[in-house]
């Protein structure tokens, strides 16, 4: 009788202690996780005028929240790729001497199709579609 009452109390206390811990930890953990800020979905942006863009060069433009690298090749064709290196998140750049896309962080190289050709990057860069209309460069997400 006595021991079972003790046992009951221990279980009751133990359970409520556990419940208390959870009720403290849970809000803290969820607080630490940053809330998702709703933002307009960007599908397309303008990236300047095509004739002002020097051949054999590249520049980073803002595609909503993410950087996109726009390149004009030596032949005058436009290409666009996600600007974020698939290795460890650095921002890539166009190297006019190599005619390739270069990541300075760990010497990663991608060719002009966005394919990782040397260095640590494990995957190709995501490609964006480029359209030139009335000398204006439009960049859109590719539907895959």
């Amino acid at each position: 009788m006595k021991t079972s009452r003790r046992k009951f109390l221990n279980i009751a206390l133990g359970t409520s202690f556990f419940g208390w811990i959870v009720s403290v930890i849970y809000p803290i953990f969820t607080y630490l996780k940053p809330p998702k800020i709703p933002e307009a979905v960007v599908n397309s942006i303008k990236a300047g005028t095509a004739s002002d863009f020097p051949a054999n060069s590249g520049k980073i433009v803002k595609f909503g929240r993410v950087p996109v690298l726009v390149i004009k090749t030596v032949e005058g064709n436009f290409r666009a790729f996600a600007g974020t290196c698939t290795h460890l998140d650095c921002i890539v750049q166009y190297r006019d001497d190599l005619k390739q896309i270069w990541c300075a962080c760990h010497n990663g190289l991608y060719d002009l199709r966005g394919i990782n050709v040397s260095g640590p990057p494990p995957r190709p860069l995501e490609e964006f579609a480029v359209d030139v209309q009335n000398d204006e460069i439009f960049i859109t997400k590719k539907l895959s």
Partner: peptide, 9 residues
């Protein structure tokens, strides 16, 4: 935050 990484990181 929208510029290529410089060399020498």
């Amino acid at each position: 935050t929208f510029a290529p990484a410089p060399a020498g990181i």
